[in-house]
């Protein structure tokens, strides 16, 4: 497949919320250095749902931690709403893959969702309102007093999502949130994310290694190379806004997009970030960097 079948991203001015520019991350320690990320540049517009997909070991989590302000990039900058990110910003929430390790096991569901709101110094009534709304939104109206470990994996991840939603962030970062749940639960959770996105108008950056998931969820898919990582392609997903597991996934366009991303990932596996691939036109790579 060549570039003409797939639209390049709109280059017109957008309202950029999150801007990642020239981010590099090198780990040093024990006398050796590892370059996890070489040079990543992209931006996410306000209200967008962008998926980042890449082969395993592509430094996806490292990137996400740099964006979240948990890790300091070796070079480059992350800017959120005009503010340089140097520590976790208040307008950002993160959902991690390891739901079993990201919820406080000594707190009930209610307390887990409420704690960040207490840190925001919201009054009690407002906190309760947000907790109720968020838990209802993820379909967990009945488990306020349960402990996370009493719930199934999928339900635990719903609690983590509710916590993020109740926090009322501008940007929601999700790090392979559904990698550890079973397929059926996963489909439900994907639809939950789409519906929350529609309902709340929040900006979502969704990291995954699952190609189908990225195409199904995203308005745009950023394809990463293997480590040391660069953006290989910035692909707009021109599927209709109403998506359903049954219809969307069996459509022709979905298959084409999936096929294309799959090819790119296969290329990425055999190629380090520096040299451009034989198949990808320089155009596409350039656009990925130019947005």
């Amino acid at each position: 497949m060549s570039g003409d079948t797939f639209a390049t991203p709109q280059t017109q001015d957008r309202d950029v919320l999150l801007d990642v520019r020239g981010v590099q991350k090198i780990y040093t320690g024990h006398g050796r250095t590892v370059e996890a990320i070489r040079d990543l540049t992209f931006s996410v517009g306000r209200g967008e749902l962008v998926c980042i997909v890449g082969p395993s070991g592509a430094g996806k989590t490292t990137l996400l931690k740099c964006i979240a302000g948990l890790l300091e990039p070796t070079a480059g900058t992350v800017t959120l709403d005009g503010q340089r990110v140097t520590r976790p910003p208040q307008s950002m929430a993160v959902v991690f893959q390891e739901y079993g390790r990201s919820l406080y096991p000594w707190k009930t569901v209610q307390q887990n969702v409420e704690l960040p709101l207490k840190q925001k110094k919201l009054p009690k009534a407002r906190r309760q309102e947000l907790v109720n709304e968020a838990l209802a939104a993820v379909g967990l109206g009945e488990v306020h007093d349960a402990y996370p470990w009493q719930l199934s994996g999928g339900m635990q991840q719903r609690v983590a999502i509710a916590r993020a939603v109740a926090y009322q962030p501008q940007v929601l970062l999700m790090d392979e949130p559904f990698a550890a749940v079973d397929a059926q639960t996963r489909a439900d959770l994907e639809d939950l994310i789409r519906s929350l996105w529609h309902k709340l108008g929040v900006t979502i950056l969704f990291v995954t290694h699952d190609i189908e998931e990225s195409v199904y969820l995203g308005q745009r898919v950023l394809v990463l190379s293997s480590s040391p990582t660069v953006v290989m392609e910035d692909l707009p997903i021109d599927l209709p806004d109403e998506r359903s597991q049954l219809e969307t996934r069996s459509g022709r366009r979905f298959a084409e997009l999936r096929h294309h991303v799959y090819e790119q990932i296969q290329l990425a596996k055999h190629r380090k970030g520096s040299e451009p691939g034989p198949d990808a036109t320089p155009d596409v790579v350039a656009h990925g960097n130019a947005v």
Binding site: G57, T61, T62, R101, G153, A180, V181
Partner: peptide, 14 residues
Amino acid sequence: SIDAPTRRAGTMPA
């Protein structure tokens, strides 16, 4: 419940 997967090299903080 599923145990948390072993952490990957890339997630380790420096």
